[in-house]
Simulated assay, not measured.
Amino acid sequence: MDFKFTVEKKDSGSRARTGILQTPHGEIKTPVFMPVGTQATVKAMTNGQVLEAGAQIILGNTYHLYMRPGHELVAEAGGLHKFMNWKKPILTDSGGFQVFSLGDLRKLTEEGAAFQSHLDGSRHMFTPEKVVQIEEALGPDIMMVLDECTPYPADYDYTKHSMERTHRWARRCKDAQTREDMALFGIVQGGMYGDLRAKSAEAVAEMDFIGNAIGGLSVGEPKPMMYEMLDVVNGILPEEKPRYLMGVGSADCLVEGVARGVDMFDCVLQTRIARNGTALVRNGKLVIRNQEFAKDFRPIDEQCDCYACRNHTRAYIRHLIKTNEILGAILLSIHNTRFTIRLMEEIRGHIEAGSFEEFRHEFMAAFRM
């Protein structure tokens, strides 16, 4: 298999580390933030803009691509890379989070997740085997097992039952894999219970996946609770394999996640808040649509090297947002994506220089969200 993860540099004061993950479509320097391209596109950005932002890898969503245009069509096009003309690595999630978010439109059994389409009400079934079949048709570099994302809050017995079913599904996913040119990652669950998180990390580590993900966090729990669970899990997951914290992208969580040994992150936050007129900046965010920026002729962030900051002002971008011009969402999406990737580049630099802990404390002291 064309996969290898090498830890390059370890921080002396935390679990932070840099590494290189080799995939069939190129190497990825970690820690890394992965922009989300839910439907084979990062919203409001061209591939060229995503590349210019520094993206090394993007995500596709199995549920949405299964519904439209269908995994068979993507396979006929030559796989997701050719379909969307993206030449770097791609990761696909299992679609489980989207299915479990359907509420009354889905039902979980040992076999899998039965659900109704959010588009037309048609009935479908995601089993571990079916999800692997869909992901292999999509053809990413990295694919995820089907898991149940336990909600917050959830009682202990429910969380334990859900976690154990996730483990059984993970084994079935591994047994169902047929393509050796794709890496399958396991997923740790266990809710907000430290003992369950420890058991899940041990069980997933024992299954010997190429990489390991941490799911079921950033689902409404307080951030200190998330950090506590990361401390438990990353104290158990093998150091020689990449660790992926799913669905987390706030700058403070990226810094604190790296400090706890996370190598990979993804989130829709960057482009979602951009479409609502909000920009990410060093100490938190700016709601550019607000009146205070109507005559502000500075760039969003004077330290940022993105296209939006090099060429346009806060006042102009606010005007675009207020008049519902699509360029406003495009410029803010470019900025938020580049801001986050640049932060990860800075984090890697500090780990390599041995100054990460100093950077971490200064960053967190100034951050407001």
Rank of each mutant, 00 (worst) to 15 (best):
C253V: 12
Q39A: 07
A203E: 05
A75P: 13
T127Y: 01
A77E: 14
V36S: 09
P238R: 04
A294Q: 15
E136M: 11
Y152I: 13
P299Y: 03
R123G: 00
M369H: 15
M163R: 11
E256G: 02
T109W: 02
G261T: 07
R106A: 02
I326W: 07
K82D: 11
N311M: 10
T178D: 09
I321Q: 05
K9Q: 09
T92G: 04
A170E: 14
R360Y: 05
F297P: 12
L80N: 13
L327P: 08
L51N: 09
Q303C: 05
A251D: 09
F126S: 08
V188R: 03
K87W: 07
S250G: 02
D93N: 04
M226P: 11
R348A: 11
C253S: 15
M264Q: 08
V204E: 00
G328V: 02
H71S: 10
V262K: 03
V36M: 06
A203M: 05
H71E: 13
L280E: 00
N47L: 15
V255L: 05
G79A: 00
R318S: 11
V131H: 01
L65Q: 08
Y244E: 03
P153D: 10
D147P: 08
Y193W: 07
Y316F: 15
A16E: 06
K82Y: 07
K322H: 12
T271S: 06
A353F: 05
F367W: 15
I134V: 04
I351D: 10
D104P: 02
P31Q: 00
E346Y: 10
T166G: 14
D157S: 15
E292R: 15
R106T: 02
E129S: 13
S94E: 10
L217W: 02
L138R: 10
K130R: 15
A366L: 11
L59G: 12
R310G: 11
R348L: 03
R342V: 13
V262S: 05
K10Q: 02
H124N: 13
K241N: 06
E76Y: 12
R172L: 04
